[in-house]
Amino acid sequence: MSRADFYLIDKPRFREQPLLLVCELVRKAVDADLPVLILARDVQQAEALDDLLWSFDPDAFLPHQIFDAEMTDEDEEIPVLIATPEMAPPPRSLVINLRDACASGPFDRVLEVVPADPDMRAPLRARWKEYKARGYTLNSHDM
Rank of each mutant, 00 (worst) to 15 (best):
I9R: 05
I9V: 14
D10V: 01
K11D: 10
F14L: 08
F14M: 07
F14E: 15
R15V: 10
Q17D: 08
P18M: 09
P18V: 05
L19Y: 06
L20F: 07
L20P: 04
L20E: 12
L21K: 07
V22W: 08
E24I: 03
E24G: 03
L25G: 02
L25D: 09
K28H: 11
A29F: 02
V30C: 13
A32P: 00
D33L: 07
P35F: 11
P35T: 07
L39G: 03
L39C: 14
A40N: 10
R41C: 04
R41S: 14
R41T: 03
V43A: 15
Q44C: 05
Q44M: 08
Q44V: 14
Q45R: 12
E47W: 02
L49T: 01
D50K: 09
D50A: 07
D50Q: 10
D51V: 03
L53G: 03
D57S: 15
D57I: 01
D57L: 06
D57E: 15
D57G: 04
P58E: 14
P58G: 11
D59I: 00
D59M: 12
L62M: 11
I66W: 12
F67H: 15
F67Y: 15
A69C: 06
M71N: 08
T72Q: 11
D73C: 04
E74P: 02
E74C: 05
E74G: 04
E74H: 06
E76P: 01
E76L: 05
V80Y: 03
V80A: 08
L81K: 06
I82M: 12
I82E: 06
A83M: 05
M87V: 06
M87K: 15
P89C: 12
P89T: 12
P89I: 13
P90V: 01
P90R: 13
P91L: 10
R92W: 03
R92N: 07
S93Y: 01
V95K: 06
N97H: 03
R99C: 07
D100F: 05
A101V: 06
C102G: 05
S104K: 10
S104F: 04
G105V: 01
G105H: 06
P106N: 10
R109P: 00
V110E: 02
V110D: 03
L111P: 00
V113M: 13
V113W: 05
V113I: 15
V114C: 11
P115R: 14
P118W: 09
P118L: 12
D119F: 04
D119V: 03
R121C: 06
A122R: 15
P123G: 12
P123R: 14
L124H: 14
R125W: 12
R125Q: 14
A126W: 04
A126V: 13
R127V: 00
